[in-house]
Design a protein around this nucleic acid. Structure first.
Lengths: 193, 193
DNA sequence: TTACATTCGGAATTATCGTTCCGTATAATA
DNA sequence: TATTATACGGAACGATAATTCCGAATGTAA
């Protein structure tokens, strides 16, 4: 009967995610994965399929984790505007703490695999829509509660949030400067006043 | 005495720039370059050094072209706020026209080669500073002329412009939507009012 | 204890990578 | 016209890519 797996499939998937996140898809070789995961080639192929399959699973894990994290964070905030402010401040702080300068896995993959990978492109579209919708719902809540003045184009602001978030994650790779980024966010959030 | 070069070194450099721009650094092989440039391996190596050297020269050409283009564009505008609006609209239109979905070479390389390439990281920092300074000078001009109300944090707005531009170039790769992006920019530019 | 399905590590395989080398073709000079 | 430095194309090179294969190790069920 089958010998039981000697490693935790999900724990290993997390590690694969870290490596693809840091190095990107093309620059990560199977040898890199063997070294980093501590698994042999055959175990990787037997368990996950191949490089692309392992990548897809890692990337899915990242997206699932992220949308859940952000959703939970925003929904537990009592004040909408402060919630978004905290979210952006958190994003900045994460970039500063990330000595590896990994940036955002989604942003990195957007620029690396488009054009050329239509499957990923569709996934990225879904991901963007999920975040835009989340932002929009929260903004709407703020409008209804009177926190955000009526008459604002909330759809555009939601879209703008995603765009700005992506930009932050690019710029943070170059040299994350806490004051510069925080001040920018403060200026930006005047749009909700 | 030396046979004269049969190809235009700069024209070939432009083509190399196109290919690295579209495919990124790692995903572009020498064979890809041989096919796309119409040159043999030895000609590439004799003329440009190697893959990295050719890439560096291509990337430099892109940055030089871009900063000059944007500088000239903004300086020839009589009205500062309309100038920025036109600049962003132009950026959106370029993304829509770009069926290759190349995005921005600088943004693509930022996410692909950081972390891992300190030389490029420094170049990217210089490039960001050049654009931020340009934006700031133009904003200052608008403030002095009375077009932009006094009391705004122009340094932060300049930095925000660069961040937003980067975000636009990421999001545009997924699915450039003229109305969605234009509306976002309109909302964003309320910050100058 | 025995049987055996499955995991594992590492060698083997095939393809492609970046780079170098070399014989031939070329065109400006003497 | 003869000379010759250089550009050129393509073969060759060693390194590394992704993937497959296989024998030894493993641990559960009979």
């Amino acid at each position: 009967m089958p010998k039981v797996k000697l490693f935790d499939e999900n724990r290993i998937l997390e590690k694969a995610m870290e490596l693809f996140w840091k190095k990107g898809y093309h620059a990560t070789s199977i040898q890199d994965l063997v070294n980093y995961l501590g698994l042999s080639r055959s175990s990787i192929y037997d368990t996950y399929g191949g490089k692309k399959e392992l990548f897809n699973k890692s990337f899915q894990l990242y997206r699932n984790t992220n949308i859940k994290k952000v959703t939970a964070f925003l929904e537990q905030q009592s004040k909408v505007k402060i919630g978004f402010k905290k979210l952006f401040e958190m994003t900045i702080q994460e970039s500063i703490n990330d000595l590896d300068k990994k940036g955002c896995f989604v942003v990195n993959i957007t620029t690396e695999l488009i054009p050329g990978d239509l499957e990923i492109q569709n996934i990225l579209k879904e991901n963007k829509d999920a975040f835009s919708s989340l932002f929009y719902e929260i903004l709407l809540k703020g409008e209804k509660s009177g926190e955000i003045p009526k008459g604002k184009n909330l759809k555009s602001i939601a879209s703008l949030f995603y765009t700005l978030y992506s930009g932050l994650k690019v710029v943070s790779k170059i040299q994350p400067n806490s004051k510069e980024l925080s001040d920018s966010i403060s200026v930006f959030l005047i749009l909700l006043e």
